[in-house]
């Protein structure tokens, strides 16, 4: 007779714990990342401008809306509201952020990341873009896990139950 895994026990229990951890990490990360950007929208607009990716027309709307999107996503991840949508958008943002950094790195533009702070460090105080790329690649790990858990595993588990 085939054993049906019971949620909260064994492998499923571990997956739940890891999923909760991933939500906590990304939730706090996104909320933390949003705060300074919300406080200083002008400086954040400058950071976006420095990336030289978006057309001028989209720089200010992005500086106004993106931090709130991060805040809401972080809150939804922590509270557990609309998880499929929140996890999907979180991953989309993480990939877009990473893509923007890699794009600038490959064209030799070593600018301030602006990921958690809107203060533009230059010279010796600035970390190289490659460091931000490595760091953001690590953030994608819990993101991908959550995506798998939320969109695939939960549905499979529901079907088994």
């Amino acid at each position: 007779m085939k054993k049906i895994p019971i949620p909260g026990n064994g492998r499923m229990g571990w997956i739940r714990v890891v999923s909760m951890l991933a939500r906590l990490i990304l939730g706090f990360l996104f909320i933390y990342a949003s705060i300074e950007k919300i406080i200083h929208p002008g400086q954040f607009a400058e950071v976006i401008h420095n990336y030289q990716i978006l057309p001028d027309l989209l720089i200010n709307p992005t500086a106004i809306i993106l931090p709130w999107l991060e805040l809401i996503l972080g809150a939804f991840l922590l509270i557990g509201i609309w998880l499929p949508g929140a996890v999907f958008l979180t991953n989309l943002l993480l990939v877009l952020f990473l893509g923007a950094m890699v794009f600038n790195l490959t064209r030799g533009l070593d600018i301030h990341c602006g990921c958690f702070s809107t203060t533009v460090d230059l010279g010796d105080a600035a970390a190289p873009m490659v460091w931000y790329v490595i760091r953001d690649s690590l953030f994608i790990v819990p993101g991908i896990f959550l995506l798998w858990h939320t969109l695939h595993y939960r549905e499979t588990a529901k079907a088994i139950e």
Binding site: I65, L66, L69, L71, L73, G85, F88
Partner: peptide, 12 residues
């Protein structure tokens, strides 16, 4: 998730 994502974006 797409539908929820759009709603979240609109709220933001």
């Amino acid at each position: 998730s797409w539908r929820q994502g759009i709603w979240i974006f609109l709220i933001a």
